[in-house]
Structure formats: structure tokens, C-alpha cells
Amino acid sequence: MSPRDCARLLLALCLVCLLATACSKSSTSEASSESSSNSSSSSSGSSSGPSGYVKDVRDYTQQFVLSGGDLSTFSSGIGSIAQKRGVTNWEQDEETFEGIGRGLKQSGVSGQRFEQLKQRFGETSPNASAWIQKGYDSEKKKD
């Protein structure tokens, strides 16, 4: 094998090394990193604005409305998101409804449709309608 061929082979092997496992989950034992929490699930997001949990509920609600989902299945999705943030009884939680209000605003729901949804969600908690309205009013619509 000529020196040139050797160089080519070496380069090819280098490229294999370089690319073979790009973006992969490392085989390195990461258990020690788990001795403290990945507190993404409890993070506050940016220094101003809603908490990480409210953002999750907002964005989920927005996507749910855009996907044309039926309200009867909405609570299953919210339940999963809430639980990851440490909330299980979300029907009595102000931040959840604030997030729903924000998500409705984000998805462009307004007028009579918004009032209907607010009333529907409001059946779960006496304060839910007010909390939804608060979230709706505090969210800026982004196009």
C-alpha cells in the first residue's frame, strides 16, 4: 500500500470516527448527573414572563386548539404535562388555568368561542373562569 493510499485510508477512518455516532446519547455513565434533578421540569423560563409550567400548558393548549382536538380529550394531555411539573390536582390550580387562557389567546380564539370555552373549563373549579381570563388578558398575541 502506497503512502498516499495509507493517508486516504486514515482520512476515511477519521471521518468514520467523526461521524459514526454524531448526536448520539453518550455511553458515558450519566447516573451521577441524576443525583441532582434535571430541573428543566421546574425551571422558571426566562427572568420575566410566565413560569415554565405555565408556558407548557399555554403551548399545549395552543397546539391542541390548532390540531382541532376535542375538549373531552384535553384533560388527559394536560394531566400528563401537569404531572411532569409536580401538579396532579390541576383542576384546582391557578397556574394551569392561566396557561390555558394564554394558550387560547395564542391560538387566536376570541369572542363567543372564547366565552364558551371559558365557561366549559370553568365547570371544574369556581375560580377557573377568572384565572383563564387573567391568563388570556396577560398574553400578547404572536403571529
Binding site: C17, L18, L19, A20, T21, A22, C23, S24, K25, S26, S27, T28, S39, S40, S43, S44, G45, S46, S47, G52
Partner: peptide
């Protein structure tokens, strides 16, 4: 090991998002 070609991510405040080959 994990990423011989390097890796990339984006960060918004406390949250980092990155795509991983799982």
C-alpha cells in the same frame, strides 16, 4: 463515545433544547 462529530443545542433562559439520536 456519544458524539464523535460534536453536538449542538439552543438555550432559552434556563432551558436547553437539543436533538439526540435515540
Amino acid at each position: 463515545g456519544g458524539a464523535s462529530g460534536g453536538h449542538v443545542a439552543v438555550r432559552f433562559g434556563d432551558d436547553v433544547y437539543h436533538y439526540q439520536n435515540v
